[in-house]
Write a protein that binds this DNA or RNA. Structure first.
Length: 302
DNA sequence: AACATCCGTCGGCTCCGTTT
DNA sequence: AAACGGAGCCGACGGATGTT
């Protein structure tokens, strides 16, 4: 039994003839006869009486018709669900991974816009400690997209650039380096340093800066909580290197933190959205479109 | 006129061997 | 082991024609 046979029974019931069903389904009359014969052979029972002017459905035919009505209705329903529609009618689920830092400083507006534009899409956000962890969850199928720093080892994954960020040194307004515009790695080595934990994008940056020309300054502590790092630095006990976007206008206005450009630091680390190219999901497609739309706005910040 | 049957055509599927 | 490609098979279909 196949879908075409169900369609045929439905068309015969509607038109009252095999010829009518053939016209309705855009096939020839022999095609209908073949399918009916095949259906009756499979059921081991006749489904209709070839009477004139109208064909009469037998009990078996009426049973097939009832199923045909249900199945074709469900297929139409399924088709409707995936057909293009207004944004506020789109349903589905999107699982997003992002570092807590990213959610707080970079992607919050984007996620909010997505929720407002597609209110019926269920958005599940997983906060990870680092962007690398988000990429790992994407590969293992735990999430559908992830926000990560740009990296070379994303072989089969697609990447949509959202923007670039640079890193700056932060000190308190009472610190010995306060008032400086730029600072070198050698000068930073003289003071206790608070660094990110391994695997964090910003840790890679500080590793490159200090380890390429010697050693790290004395390590006061390690943390991936940027707000905590800023708080400790504001107390005047050490320095840190953080993404520039984490130092807000409010931080500057309160005059507790100062930012210094770091000499020789590799600037402009890209970040964006990674997704699996081998899996097609309409919610992922919509989210990527929104990211592309927002990437211009994000890029202008730097 | 409406439907059934025969027969040829075509497209899709399966199987199997080969390649990567 | 997975991917690819060719050969053969099968089912769906349409045209022609027979039957009711």
């Amino acid at each position: 039994m196949n879908l075409q046979q169900l369609r045929i029974i439905k068309a015969i019931a509607k038109t009252g003839s095999i010829q009518g069903a053939a016209e309705a389904l855009h096939v020839t009359q022999p095609a209908i006869s073949h399918q009916l014969k095949s259906l009756e052979e499979e059921l081991g029972e006749s489904v209709l009486i070839r009477s004139r002017p109208d064909i009469v459905l037998l009990p078996a035919g009426r049973e097939v018709l009832a199923v045909a009505e249900r199945v074709t209705a469900e297929i139409e329903d399924l088709r409707q669900r995936f057909s293009p529609k207004a944004p506020d009618e789109i349903t589905g689920t999107l699982r997003v991974a992002a570092s807590t830092l990213g959610i707080v400083y970079l992607y919050g507006d984007l996620l909010q816009t997505f929720m407002e534009r597609y209110p019926k899409v269920s958005l599940v956000v997983t906060a990870t400690e680092t962007g690398v962890e988000g990429a790992r969850q994407l590969v293992s199928g735990l999430v559908d997209v992830a926000f990560v720093p740009a990296a070379d080892n994303m072989e089969d994954l697609g990447f949509t650039v959202l923007g670039k960020t640079k890193h700056v040194a932060i000190v308190s307004s009472t610190h010995a380096l306060s008032g400086r515009i730029t600072v070198s790695a050698a000068e930073l080595r003289r003071f206790p340093f608070i660094r990110y934990r391994p695997n964090a994008g910003s840790r890679t940056t500080s590793d490159k800066l200090f380890l390429s020309s010697g050693e790290y300054p004395p390590i006061l502590m390690e943390s991936n909580d940027t707000e905590f790092i800023k708080r400790v630095v504001a107390m005047g006990v050490g320095t840190a290197i953080v993404p520039e976007f984490t130092v807000t206008q409010r931080d500057r206005e309160q005059r507790v933190l100062e930012t210094l450009q770091v000499q020789h630091i590799s600037i402009a680390q890209g970040y964006g959205l990674v997704f699996r190219q081998d899996i097609k999901m309409h919610t992922v497609h919509l989210f990527r479109e929104l990211c592309i739309e927002h990437s211009d706005l994000t890029m202008k910040r730097f």
